[in-house]
Amino acid sequence: MEHRHLITFITIVKKGGFKIAADELGYAQSSVTGHIKELEEELGKPLFDRLGRKITLTQAGKDFLPFAEDIIQLYSKAKEVLNSSDDMPSGQLTIGASESIMIYWLPDIISEFMGKYPKVELVIKSLDYDNLSNQLKNGDIDVALLIELSNWKGKNLIENKLKNENLSLVKSVKKENQKKIEGTMLITEYSCSWRPAVEAYINKQGKDSILKVELPSVEAIKKYVLCGLGKSMLPHFIIKDELERNQLEEMEANVGYNSLGIYTAIHKDKWISRNLEVFLSILENKSEK
């Protein structure tokens, strides 16, 4: 049972097709088909039902999938153990981060990490919030960095709050269009962790008195606020520079809860590699400053 055959099998399941898996892995489609044929011959069972262009896992495929994932995980762990026997950590480390963390909080940490551990190959991915536990379980990411409400708990995860953060209600200091700014709320998507606090503020102000404008990213929201297109609630670390430069003005929200936390999360069954260990150590040290 070849490692590459298992990788191909899992990639087909994740991507939903042979062709897209071939593109992802850099193989010809015939090679992907060949990998699955050899794997099915070895197992003595078909792994996929092929119904025209649509493929679905057979029952044998569904039964085999968790074992294939475990084998890949063990293979990765074995390589990490061998790599970690060196004095200097090396190999790959995959970090999943929320947008705000990735843009505003993580760069300084990554710079320090790369300076100390140049042999580690970093991969930084966006978090899939609806599939966070599976991202960690399947090894798509080794660790997640995210901002959540202060009492956040994840399913099948080990969480560690690195530091507390406040949620700030801010508006532009521009004098023109203040009435429009006060009456417009620039809001995040529903999957955003602090959206409940935003909704609580809007409800307190009176829904009919606030025009909601939903934007897909915190960076877009901040730009719109700076342009005087409305007010918004954002974690303090996102807008602290603009507050210090007197480009934004902080307002009283009075929503009862505005406490957030920056968290790390790993799967409860995750083996802590040397690479992950030193990365977590840098995070802890940085958060204490």
Rank of each mutant, 00 (worst) to 15 (best):
G230L: 04
T264D: 01
E199H: 04
V255M: 12
S209E: 07
V218I: 13
I181K: 01
L243G: 05
S217Y: 04
D208V: 15
N246V: 13
A200N: 07
W194I: 12
C192T: 09
E252M: 13
C192V: 14
S209F: 15
K180E: 00
N246P: 06
T264P: 11
L226T: 06
K207T: 01
G206C: 04
T188H: 03
F237Y: 06
K240R: 11
E249D: 05
A220V: 11
E214K: 12
I221L: 05
Y263F: 14
H236M: 08
H236W: 12
Y263R: 10
V213N: 08
G183H: 06
I239R: 00
E252I: 13
S191C: 15
L215A: 08
V198R: 05
F237T: 01
E250K: 03
K231G: 00
I210A: 07
G228E: 01
D241T: 09
A197N: 04
N203K: 14
A200P: 03
N254H: 11
F237K: 02
K240G: 06
L186M: 03
V225L: 14
M251G: 02
D208T: 15
L215H: 03
K231I: 01
I239H: 00
S209Q: 10
L229I: 10
E219Y: 13
S217N: 06
L186C: 02
L234I: 14
G206I: 04
K207A: 02
R245I: 03
E250R: 03
A200H: 07
S232A: 13
M251Y: 05
T184V: 09
I238Q: 03
E199T: 01
I262D: 00
L186R: 00
E214T: 10
Y263P: 02
K207N: 00
I187L: 10
N246C: 09
T188L: 12
E219R: 11
V255W: 13
K204D: 00
A200C: 08
M233N: 02
S193L: 14
G256Q: 09
V225W: 05
I262Q: 00
E199W: 08
N254F: 13
D208H: 15
E189L: 11
E189W: 08
M185F: 06
C227T: 07
V198I: 14
K222W: 08
D208M: 15
N203E: 14
K207S: 01
S232H: 09
L234Y: 07
W194S: 01
K212R: 13
L243V: 08
K222Y: 10
K222E: 02
L215K: 06
G261H: 10
K223D: 03
Q205L: 12
L248K: 02
L234V: 12
E182Y: 12
K231P: 00
L260K: 04
E182A: 11
K240F: 13
Q247E: 04
L260S: 02
L186I: 09
K204I: 12
I238T: 03
G230T: 02
K223H: 03
A200M: 14
C192F: 10
L229P: 04
C227I: 12
K231A: 03
S209L: 15
E244L: 14
G228S: 05
V198E: 08
V218T: 04
E242K: 09
N203A: 15
I221K: 01
I239N: 00
R195H: 13
P235V: 13
S209P: 08
I202L: 05
S217H: 05
W194E: 03
S232T: 11
